[in-house]
Design a protein around this nucleic acid. Structure first.
Length: 402
RNA sequence: GCGUCGGUGGCAGAGUGGUCAAUUGCAAUUGGCUGUAAACCAAUCGCCUUCGGGCUACGGGGGUUCGAAUCCCUCCCGGCGCACCA
C-alpha cells in the first residue's frame, strides 16, 4: 500500500542517520550510503526478546535509531522475539543455565511493549512501523533441535573425530549456543529485510543473519550496531539502585533515575537517546570538557528524555520537583501512598517498602526513617501508622500513610 | 554407560566434625562528604524477637555422632576424562 513511498535523500540527514548513535556498520558505511542516496526504500528491523515485562533505557538506543530510519521514510519492523526468547540468547552470558521462558510468558511480557515504545516509534500515520512476532515462524521443530542440543556439551561433541577433523579444516560445529544465532538469523530471512539494528553485543548474531540471508537468498543484509550505554569502568547503565530505568516510569521517577546516572554517560545519552540536534550534543560535550558542572547538563538531559517519553509539561514539572526536593531539600508534593496497617512496621512490610521487620529495625537504628510531620527521625520501633503522616526513607524515598 | 571432581548466602569464592548465620571480594542498603554523579570514609547486609534469645539455612532425602556445611548412604544437577558415534 505504501509501495511508492519516498525516502529522504538529503546528504546531511543521511550522514546523521549513519553516524549518530552508531557504533559500526557491516559490511561498510559507504556501501550503505550509496544505497540510501539512490532513494531506495529499505526494510529494517530490530528484535527484542521479551524476557522481562519492561523496556528500559538501554533499549531506547536502538528504538531511537529505528525511529530515525522511520522518519527517513524506510520500512521499520519492531520484532518481538517470543520465539528466540524461548531458546535463550547466549550472548553475554557467562553460564549456560538460565531461566526458561514459555511462549505464553513471553507474550504476556510483551503486552505493554507497543505502548512503552510508542512515544518513540510510530505505529500509525503514513509510515507506521510493523509489529511481528518471530514465534510465528520459528516453529516447534526448530525449537526442539535446540532443546535436544542443550543436553550436549561443547567438549563432548567436539571430541568426536569427525568434528575434530572438520575443525582442523576450518569447518563449523553445531550446538545450542552455536545454533541460536541461526534462529535469530532466520528472522532476517523470513522477513526479507535489508538491514538490522542491534546493540553491539548482538553483532555476532546479526552477522550470522547476514550470512544466512546471503546464502539462502543471495541478498546483502546490512547490520548497524549501536553502542551499549556504559560508564568508564564498563558497567552497563540502564540500572540504578538495582532497578531498571523503564521507559514507562513516572516522569518524576524517570528524571531522578537519570540524574543518578554517572556523569560520563551524559554526552552519549544525549546522542543516542534524544532527538536534540547534533550541534547541541557537540556543545554539551565541549562545555563539559571545558569544566562546566556536568550536573547542569544532566538536568537538561533528564528533562529532554522525560519530554520525549511523556510531554513538555511533565518534563518541566519533573525538573522543578527535582530541584525543590533534592536541591532545596523541600518535601515533594506528590508521593506514593500506602495503606496504614496499625503500626508503621506492619505498614511498611505489607507495602514492600522494607523487605522484612528486621530490615525496618535496622533502618530505625540507623536513623534512616524520618517522620516529616514531626521533623524528626523515627526512634520508636512500634510507632503507629497515623493516616496522613508523611515519611522519608533514606535519602530518596517518600511515603504518605493513607 | 564408566571414571573422576564438584554443587555454600544476589554473584564470585573460603571453610572440610564443635569457637559457623558461616572468612573474603563484588553487588546492595544506611550514614558522612557532595551535584540523588564519581571517588573516598564508616556502619549494615537470613528470619523472628518482650533484645535475654529463638528459628531456619551450606543441591534433595536418609544415616553416624553429645554435636555435621564438614563423615557415610542414596537421589538429583553440573564440569572434566574415557567409551559409544555401525
Amino acid at each position: 500500500m505504501i509501495r511508492e513511498m519516498k525516502t529522504i535523500t538529503d546528504s546531511g540527514k543521511i550522514e546523521e542517520l549513519l553516524s549518530r548513535g552508531v557504533e559500526k556498520i557491516y559490511p561498510g558505511k559507504e556501501e550503505l550510503r550509496k544505497i540510501l542516496v539512490s532513494g531506495k526504500r529499505l526494510r529494517l528491523y530490530q528484535g527484542f526478546d521479551p524476557t522481562g515485562t519492561k523496556l528500559h533505557l538501554g533499549h531506547m538506543v536502538g528504538l531511537r535509531k529505528l525511529a530515525a530510519w522511520q522518519e527517513m521514510g524506510h520500512e521499520v519492523i519492531f520484532l518481538i522475539g517470543d520465539g528466540t526468547g524461548q531458546a535463550g540468547d547466549p550472548s553475554g552470558k557467562t553460564s549456560a543455565r538460565e531461566k526458561f521462558h514459555t511462549r505464553q510468558e513471553l507474550r504476556e511480557n510483551a503486552k505493554n511493549y507497543i505502548e512503552e515504545v510508542s512515544p518513540i516509534l510510530k505505529f500509525d500515520g503514513k509510515n507506521p512501523a510493523k509489529v511481528l512476532y518471530n514465534g510465528d515462524w520459528l516453529n516447534e521443530a526448530l525449537l526442539n533441535i535446540l532443546n535436544i542440543a542443550e543436553h550436549f556439551s561443547l567438549s563432548q561433541l567436539a571430541e568426536r573425530d569427525l568434528f575434530q577433523e572438520r575443525i582442523k579444516k576450518g569447518g563449523t560445529v553445531n550446538m545450542k549456543e552455536f545454533l541460536y544465532p541461526l534462529l535469530q538469523g532466520y528472522d532476517s530471512v523470513h522477513m526479507d529485510v535489508d538491514l538490522e539494528i542491534g546493540g553491539s553485543d548482538q553483532t555476532f548474531n546479526m552477522l550470522c543473519g547476514r550470512t544466512l540471508l546471503k546464502s539462502m537468498k543471495g541478498k546483502e543484509k546490512f547490520v548497524m550496531t549501536t553502542p551499549l550505554l556504559a560508564d568508564k569502568s564498563g558497567r552497563k547503565i540502564g540500572k540504578t539502585e538495582g532497578n531498571i530505568i523503564a521507559l514507562d516510569d513516572a516522569p518524576g521517577e524517570l528524571f531522578g533515575k537519570i540524574m543518578a546516572l554517572p556523569d560520563e554517560v551524559i554526552v552519549q545519552c544525549f546522542e543516542c537517546l534524544t532527538t536534540a540536534p547534533m550541534e547541541k550534543v557537540r556543545s554539551v560535550a565541549k562545555a563539559i570538557s571545558l569544566g562546566d558542572n556536568p550536573m547542569v547538563h544532566k538536568k537538561e538531559l533528564a528533562e529532554e528524555i522525560v519530554r520525549e517519553l511523556n510531554n513538555d509539561h511533565a518534563a518541566k514539572e519533573a525538573a522543578a520537583e527535582f530541584s525543590a526536593t533534592f536541591q532545596k531539600r523541600e518535601t515533594p508534593e506528590d508521593m506514593p501512598e500506602v495503606l496504614g496497617k496499625g503500626s508503621l512496621i506492619e505498614t511498611f512490610v505489607a507495602a514492600d517498602i522494607v523487605s522484612s521487620k528486621t530490615e525496618f529495625r535496622r533502618l530505625i537504628q540507623e536513623g534512616a526513617i524520618e517522620n516529616l510531620e514531626a521533623r524528626a527521625s523515627v526512634e520508636n520501633v512500634n510507632e503507629r501508622a497515623v493516616s496522613g503522616t508523611r515519611y522519608k526513607i533514606g535519602k530518596k524515598r517518600f511515603v504518605r500513610i493513607k
